Simulated assay, not measured.
Amino acid sequence: MKTTSLTLPEFAFVEGSEHEEGGDPLYGRNVIIHNRTASVMEVFLKEDVVLEDDVVSLNFSNKNSFGIKERMTIALHYSSTLDKVIDRAMIIEEVLKPAAKWYCDYCDWMDKNISND
């Protein structure tokens, strides 16, 4: 019998499922979960989203492999353990900023894979 580790990474992508009526509801979206706080967020290209003022979000950018600066926004959908009003500053510093870095690292990794093919 093989021992299974129940350790989860700090961040992971959330994927939908093809079996749902109408297909995968998350197809083409970049939804991320922060496992430690059960916070769900989504990454958008900055020019593709307009958020309400009360949405906890962070603007960031990443330079792709062509040297083009991609401007993005990461927005909190919800958190099971944090209050978006009381914990707003902490969410930005300890969840959204690290998630943005994690996403940029993913984009850089994808760019390298594409250029190697």
Rank of each mutant, 00 (worst) to 15 (best):
M1N: 11
M1P: 14
T3I: 10
T4I: 14
T7K: 12
T7F: 04
L8S: 07
P9F: 03
E10Y: 05
E10N: 12
V14L: 14
S17A: 12
E18L: 09
E20F: 13
E20Y: 12
E21M: 11
G22N: 08
L26I: 02
Y27G: 08
R29C: 09
N30P: 00
H34E: 07
H34F: 01
N35C: 04
V40L: 12
V40K: 04
M41Y: 03
V43K: 05
F44G: 04
L45G: 03
E47T: 06
D48H: 07
D48W: 00
V50L: 06
L51I: 05
L51T: 06
L51H: 05
E52K: 11
D53Y: 01
D53P: 10
D53I: 00
D54F: 03
V55T: 14
S57E: 01
L58P: 05
L58S: 03
F60H: 04
S61H: 12
G67N: 03
E70C: 14
E70A: 09
R71I: 00
R71V: 01
T73Y: 00
I74P: 08
H77F: 04
S80W: 00
L82G: 02
L82S: 05
K84A: 10
I86R: 09
I86E: 07
D87S: 04
E93N: 13
E94L: 10
L96S: 03
L96Q: 02
A99V: 06
A100I: 10
A100W: 05
C104R: 10
C104N: 14
C104G: 14
Y106A: 12
C107S: 13
C107F: 11
C107T: 11
W109D: 15
D111S: 13
D111Y: 07
K112T: 15
K112V: 14
N116I: 13
N116H: 14
